[in-house]
Structures are given as structure tokens and as C-alpha cells.
Amino acid sequence: MNDTLFAIEHVSYGYENAGTGQPLALNRVSLEVKRGDYVALLGHNGSGKSTLARLLNGLLLPTSGQVLVDGMDTRDADARQRIRELVGMIFSDPDNQIVATLVEDDVAWGLAARGWPKPRIVERVGAALDAVGLAEMRGRPPHQLSGGQRQRLAIAGVLALQPACIVADEPTALLDPRARGEMVALLHDLHRTHGLTVVHVTHLLEEAALADRIIVLQAGRVILEGPPAAVLADLDRLRALRLVIPELAELGQRLREHGIYIPADALSPQALVRALEATR
């Protein structure tokens, strides 16, 4: 086993018609993600964060440079099946990856397609539905589920393949605030209890603040990288990147100006008040 899950080396990516002077979506990006990391890819629309996410399991192949997943090159067609099993992806709209008419059939889909024996499928499906809290919904048609539940179903479908990593591309974009919080909590739970590596693509500082490490992209380049408390400390810089500055980030900054030390990554009401208490 290799400690480095993703090694991204000098990767550039240009979409077609790049010849028309369109800038590269990714421009010589180099990164490493270790097994068990929770990494947030933060950036504004068009910063290249979704492109980078799609390069991680070979949905897109680099125009130049290379992406190694557990030592395997995504351009190697023979390795691609194995890479896709290691790295599962979910997107904003779960309906794009829900295929079956019953919840449990949907989770079983990937395994059935690989010709697994039924008893093992049943076992894996049960475990995946438990992990996302949908065990009671197994006999329901997916369209009866709420948006947040359908997103969890999409995650269960990925988990059934027992990946090493989940790449979640704006997984909360279509959810209302409460379902959004539950989805983020689920990803962290999977990271903690199942040791999953998570790459969480987002434009929300509140979500990025909970990661182990934040990578900020702008115009196809990595421009900031580090632990949340460091990356989120410079609000003016993040504002200049056209990111929405949460009101609690502003509150924290103002309290710091008054000499009350609130860490820059305390962006939930609970974390902020806890930090306030700690300094009393």
C-alpha cells in the first residue's frame, strides 16, 4: 500500500476549442493527496476545481502532465477500471447517477454490473445503506426520497464498491441549508469512521473550513494551500477571489480586531461560540 493516493504532476487541461484563445482550465498544477486526507478544493465558478476533480478518476485525462492514483497513471486504459473502483465520484445533482427503480437496486447496480454473487451484493448494499442512514428506505423508489436523501443514495452507490476515496463535486449545491449541513456531516463521518479519503469541491468557505487542508484554485492554478485556519485568515484575499464571505467569518475577524482570539476556521455558530468561551 502506498501512502500517497493522488500524485498530480504538472497537469494542464484545455477544453476543446482551446485553439480559439480560451485559457487552459488547469495550468501546470502539481499536488499530492495522502490516504485518509480530507481535502477541500475551493474556488469560484470557472476556477478549474471541477476539472481537477474529474481528472482524479480519469473522467478527464490531462492534456499534459500526469495524474497518478495509487501509483497508476489515469491515461493507462488497463488501470482505469481499478482507478474507478478506488475513486468514486458524486456530483451536485444525484439524479444524474440514480439508475434503478428501487433504492437497494440502485446501490447494487455497480456490483451487479461487475457480476458479483448475490449474497455478497446483499451484504455490501446493506452496509452501504447503513453507512448513509438510508437502511429504512431500501424498498422505496428513489423519486420518493428528498433531495438530501437522494444525494445520500448516490453516495451509497459509490460506497458499495468500497472505494479508497470519494470525490464530491459541489455535493450540496442543490440542497437547502439543513440538508446541506447533514450532507457535510455525512462526508466527515465517512472520513472518520471508514477512513475514506475525501476530496470535497466547494465554493463555500463554511464547508472548506471543516477540511484538513484547503487548496484554493483561481484561473486554473493553485494559488493558496494549507490548513483552514491559515487559508481562511486573509478574508480580503478570498473576497478578491469572488468567494462569498460568511457573516460568521466577518464576526470572527471583528472579534480578532478587538483582541479576542477566534481562529479563522471557526465558521460554524458552535465553533465560534466555543472559541469565544475558550478565551473567556
Binding site: R178, G181, L251, P269
Partner: peptide, 23 residues
């Protein structure tokens, strides 16, 4: 608000929490 499936704005939540802690 929670029973309507919504969340109060984060700032209002922080104020509520701080009040519970005696601020």
C-alpha cells in the same frame, strides 16, 4: 424554524448560542 425544515441564519444561531452561555 427547525420544524419548518429551515435553519436560522448562522449569525442568529451564534447569538442564540452566546445567550445560552450567559452573554
Amino acid at each position: 424554524i427547525l420544524s419548518c425544515g429551515l435553519l436560522p441564519p448562522p449569525l442568529a444561531q451564534a447569538v442564540t448560542l452566546a445567550r445560552e452561555r450567559g452573554y
